[in-house]
Design a protein around this nucleic acid. Sequence first.
DNA 1: GGAAATTAGTTTCTAATGAAACTAATTCGG
DNA 2: CCGAATTAGTTTCATTAGAAACTAATTTCC
Lengths: 161, 161
Amino acid sequence: MTENLLEVRVPKDGWDLAGFLPYRLSVVSNTISGDLARLYAERYGLGVPEWRVVAILGSFGRMTASDVVERTAMDKVQVSRSVARLKEAGHLERVVDAADRRRAHLSLTERGRALFTDIVPRAEARIERLLRSVSEEDRRTIDRAVGILEQAAGSLAQADG
Amino acid sequence: MTENLLEVRVPKDGWDLAGFLPYRLSVVSNTISGDLARLYAERYGLGVPEWRVVAILGSFGRMTASDVVERTAMDKVQVSRSVARLKEAGHLERVVDAADRRRAHLSLTERGRALFTDIVPRAEARIERLLRSVSEEDRRTIDRAVGILEQAAGSLAQADG
DNA sequence: GGAAATTAGTTTCTAATGAAACTAATTCGG
DNA sequence: CCGAATTAGTTTCATTAGAAACTAATTTCC
C-alpha cells in the first residue's frame, strides 16, 4: 500500500499528467497569478514584474536593482525594464551611488508609496477571497507545503541546473 | 496569537512580498518547471507546451485539440501550435473526424509514444531528485496542499475573473 | 431549407520574454 | 599605476505568448 505519492506510476500505458507535481503547481500558480495580474493591470496599469518591484521597495525600502534581483529571483533584464517604466510613471526614483557610480539606489516616490499602500490590501483581499472556503488548518498545510517546496527548490537552484 | 497565515499584515510600512502566497507559489513553480524545461529542451528539443500535449495524449490516448485544452488549461492557440510542431516532427498524427470535419483526432505515433515512454521516467527522476530530502510525510503535506489550492483556484476560475 | 449563431481550430499582429552582447564604472594583479 | 577581469545595469535581437480576428464546418431555430 505504499502509495508512491507525487511520483505516480511509470507508464505502461497510463501515466497521468494531472497527477504530476510540476504541472499541478503551474496550473494553480498561473490561475492565482492571473487573477491578481488582472487586478494590477485593470486598476493600475501595472504588470506583474512592476508590481513586484513596487512591493519589494515598499516592503524593504531603498535598495539597488541588484538587491531587487536577489530578493525576487527575477532576472535583471526584467528588473531593469520594470524600473524604467516605474520611473517613467513617477513611481520611483533612482539616485546614483556617489561612491560607486555603476549602482543606483531605488526608492518609491510619494506616488509610488501611495500605490503600494493602495494595492496591498486589495491583493490581500483577493487572496482572502480565494481562500474563503479554506479552513485555518488547511491554510497552515498550504503554508507548510510551500515552505517545504521553497527549500527543496532552493537546493535545486544552487546545485546548478 | 492568531498568526494570520498567508495573509500577513497590512502595511504600516512593512509588508513582505516574500510571504505573499501567489509570489511564493510562482517562484517555486517557475524554479521547478524551469528545471524540467531544460530537460525537455536539451534532450528532446521539446518546449513545455509540446511536452504537455505529448503527456496528455500518452496518458489518455486519442482526443481532439479541444479535449486537450480542457484537460490542461492550456489555451487553444498554444495547443494548436504545439500540435503543428509535433505533427511536423512526426510525433503525432491528426485524423479529421468523418462526422464533424471541424474536429481532428490526435494521437501519438510510434515515435511519439517512444518519446513519451522515454521522457516520463526521466521527468519522474527529476522530481525525485528535487524531493530527495523531503520526508514521506512532507510529501503528503505537499500533495494535500496542492489539492486544496486546486480546488480553491478552480472555484476562482469558474466565478468569472 | 436557409440565415444567424456556435464551435473547432488557425492565423495575424502586437507585446512580453530572455539570452547574449554591450557600455560604463570599478577592482584586481602584477 | 595600468591592463585584464569583474560588476551594474542596459540594449539588441530573436523567440514566444496571447488577444483578437478569421476560416470553415456545423447547429439552431424560424
